[in-house]
Structures are given as structure tokens and as C-alpha cells.
């Protein structure tokens, strides 16, 4: 029985790290730019298709190493351009938050079906980064899951550290808290917005590559990822990186234990009930601030 609980606990950790990976980009962008990116899941898939294109038809030398290396400039440029061309022109309107949501909703439609028309409606699979398992006593783990666990947590923690301890990070936070004030003290607000968006797009791209190689590249999968990421950010508190991290693991554990004890069919309703109750009591989520 104890062994079983440990096993489920590990499933929870794996779920949690996958969720953390999904949510990190969303919460960062929202925290700084207050732009809610509905096309989030589609960027996730862009990561998957990016890796697929390089690895399968182009059979790039260096495998995943090259993919990650090339992903950094690629996603930076995509994110930067997206912010400059599509989002920052909207910022001058007073209802720009709503406009951003609508624009990105349209964008996600465009991107999802763009993938479908380019890559076809069927799912694609990527080769694993690491194959193989690790055995500790009775418990067997995928090396892949361990990699995702380490990368997603360290990624988030690093990011939190940069935000809180470096000059650039503080500038980003200053813009997040008071854009006008930040500009007065000489922080290039527009650049910070675009750069944050670009950096978060890199994180999303990396997340997409990691997750798509664990599961699949699914042209219709973006809505699912959007919704999961959204649940986690809402639960953890919009814009709070640490909140998202907690939320990811709480929900991951909840999913594993409810699925194990009551059955998988009750997982979704349990998760969403927890979210609704939390929002009713603490509308800003676990760690959210005004």
C-alpha cells in the first residue's frame, strides 16, 4: 500500500512538472504585460512543429542540441515581432486588454489551422530526448520524466531569481507594477514589454518541444494546453510565478490521487471545482496580487 502511494505520488510529481512547464510562459507574460495570450497553446505547438521540422524532414545534425540552440533566436524573433506588430499597437486603447484577448483568439485559430493545412490533420511524434528507465527498488521511472521535472522546476526558479535579483529583472517588475512610473525613471517600457514577450515565447517554445517529444505534436492540442495552462495560472494567481509553480504541483497531485482513488473520470470535475472554490474565496488565486 505504501509503495502504491509512493507510486501515485511520483505520478503527481510528473503531472506537476508537466503543468509547470505548460504554465510558465503564460503567467510571465500576464504578470508583466497584462496581456492575456489566447494563442498561447498555438505557440506551444509551434515548438513541437519546429522540432519536428528540424528533426524529421531536415534531419539536422546534432539532434536536440541543435534544435534547442536554434530555438532561442527563432522564438525570440517570433515573440518580439508578435508583440511589436500585433499587440503594442493595441495598447493605446483603453479597452486594450479585451482587444488583445480577441486578437490572440483569432491568431490561435489562424495558427492552429495553419499547422493543419501545412502539416496535415494527423498527429506527429518526435523521437525522445532520452529513452530508457531508471529503477529504484520496485519503482521504475522514465529518464525523460526526470529531465522534464528538473528542467521545469529549475527554469521557473531561475526565472523567479532573475526577476527578483537582477537589474533587468527589477526593471521588468517595475514596468509590471507601474508602466508610466517606470518610464518616468527611464526604463524603456516598450522594449521591456516586447522583450518579456519574446523571452516568454522562448520558454513556451522550449516547453512545447519538451512536452511534444514526451507525447505528440497534435494540431488540435493547443486548446487543451491553453485551458490547462489557464487553470494553473488562474489557480496560482495571475502573474505570480511562484503561485503557478505551487498550483501546478497541487493540481498534479490532486489529479494523481483523485484518479487513483476515485477514478479518472472524476479528475476534471475535482480540479475545476477546486479552481471555482478558490476563485470564489480568493479571486486573485493562491498567490495573486493586485
Amino acid at each position: 500500500m505504501l509503495l502504491e502511494i509512493i507510486d501515485v505520488f511520483i505520478s503527481g510529481l510528473i503531472n506537476g512538472s508537466v503543468y509547470a512547464l505548460m504554465a510558465v510562459g503564460l503567467t510571465l507574460v500576464y504578470g508583466v504585460t497584462k496581456a492575456f495570450n489566447f494563442a498561447y497553446g498555438s505557440f506551444y505547438n509551434l515548438g513541437g512543429y519546429f522540432a519536428w521540422t528540424l528533426l524529421i524532414p531536415l534531419t539536422i545534425i546534432g539532434g536536440y542540441f541543435s534544435v534547442f540552440f536554434m530555438a532561442i533566436p527563432f522564438f525570440f524573433i517570433v515573440g518580439y515581432l508578435l508583440e511589436k506588430v500585433l499587440i503594442s499597437p493595441l495598447r493605446k486603447y483603453d479597452d486594450w486588454e479585451m482587444k488583445v484577448m480577441m486578437l490572440t483568439l483569432g491568431l490561435s485559430l489562424f495558427m492552429d489551422f495553419g499547422y493543419q493545412s501545412i502539416f496535415g490533420p494527423r498527429i506527429k511524434s518526435l523521437p525522445g530526448i532520452i529513452e530508457g528507465t531508471v529503477q529504484i527498488g520496485e519503482i521504475v521511472l522514465f529518464q525523460q520524466d526526470i529531465v522534464i521535472f528538473i528542467l521545469s522546476i529549475s527554469g521557473m526558479l531561475c526565472f523567479g531569481w532573475v526577476l527578483n535579483n537582477t537589474r533587468t529583472g527589477m526593471a521588468v517588475q517595475a514596468v509590471a507594477q507601474n508602466p508610466a512610473g517606470a518610464q518616468i525613471v527611464g526604463i524603456p517600457k516598450d522594449f521591456i514589454f516586447a522583450a518579456t514577450f519574446a523571452i516568454s515565447t522562448i520558454m513556451v517554445g522550449f516547453g512545447g518541444i519538451l512536452l511534444c517529444q514526451k507525447n505528440f505534436v497534435d494540431p488540435m492540442g493547443s486548446t487543451d494546453i491553453m485551458i490547462k495552462a489557464w487553470v494553473i495560472t488562474a489557480f496560482g494567481g495571475m502573474g505570480s510565478i511562484r503561485g503557478s509553480l505551487y498550483a501546478a504541483f497541487i493540481l498534479g497531485m490532486l489529479e494523481a490521487f483523485v484518479g487513483w482513488y476515485f477514478g479518472m473520470i472524476h479528475v476534471q470535475i475535482a480540479t475545476l471545482t477546486l479552481l471555482l472554490v478558490t476563485l470564489a474565496i480568493r479571486p486573485r488565486g493562491l498567490m495573486g496580487r493586485e
Partner: peptide, 11 residues
């Protein structure tokens, strides 16, 4: 959309 089978496989 169920892709994490850990809890079921445990049982």
C-alpha cells in the same frame, strides 16, 4: 485526452 496513466497503472 488522458495521457498520464500512472495512477491507473499503479492499480
Amino acid at each position: 485526452g488522458t495521457n498520464e496513466w500512472g495512477p491507473i497503472l499503479t492499480k
